[in-house]
Amino acid sequence: MTEYALFLGCMVPNRLPHLEFSFRKILNHLDSNDLVHDISGFGCCPEPIGFPGMDNITFMTLAARNLTVAEEQKLDILTLCTGCFESLKTASVKLKHEPKLLEKVNKHLSKVGREYNGTVEVKHIAQFFYDDIGFEKLKKNVVKHLDNIKVAAHYGCHLLRPSEILAFDDPHNPTKLDELIEATGAKSVMYLRRDYCCGAGTKSLDGNVAAEMVMEKLRQIARVGADCMSVVCPFCFLQFDLGQEMASRAFKDSYDVPYQIPVLYYTQLLGLSFGIDPKEFDFKRHRIKVKPLLEKIDAVAVPAV
């Protein structure tokens, strides 16, 4: 089995530790702690939106630095955030296929006594659950079929695109996260604009643009009667959780707001189906109340046989 260095990034550990907790909890529950290692030395991924726009070489160099940290330990990288995933995966793919770029980057890295040899693979936890853990193991641990709820999957731009580099799933019609959601017994519902952006990327420049995007997604999700959303990125999480509340306020005249669609990080959803006590996940940190969802689940959830 491939072993990974866990790349926490900045948003998850420094703002949303309860998401990190849910992942570790699941890992523990699956008895797979030995697949994922905490190592020191990682820096900023760096973020894939503004940073590469300022200077691509610096972006590549800082990302490659992180790759060398894992390379030293002969580990691949596992990310909790799709942003980290895109940055690191882009770097690993490009450095593998563009020797000139690698040479340039290594020249800079040599100033801190590092060299990247192009051996590190980068995975996002969605892929990790899909490939490494596998459905058999996931399903075996499901004790509480979430049959009663409809979940809207939000993949996130940086998990899917550019598909040529990230190669996670079909960018127009992805299915993997849906399959992962359905492993819990829940129904993953189709909705329009599944591939639409959460808007996090434009937030710093224009909050309105970002809010419009959130609303457009929520409108489609609400329409198909989803009970909650499932995301795999802390930025998407914030956008839909905190952002939902804020956008609902901002657009209170033009949409059927406020929406109340709880947002769950995938490992939280998984945890519920594993029968982990919801209290452990500290759902009160969520801006959109999760309680109604939990009640709905418990209303009919049947123990799996």
Binding site: N14, P17, G41, T58, T61, L62, R65
Partner: peptide
């Protein structure tokens, strides 16, 4: 503090020096 409550591991220090050196090196 919240991390502690969750029993999450302490975060290692970020490699600020290395990042500064690299950023200087690229002209950034």
């Amino acid at each position: 503090r919240r991390r502690e409550k969750f029993g999450l591991p302490e975060l290692p220090d970020a490699p600020v020096d290395e990042i500064r050196t690299l950023v200087k090196s690229t002209g950034f």
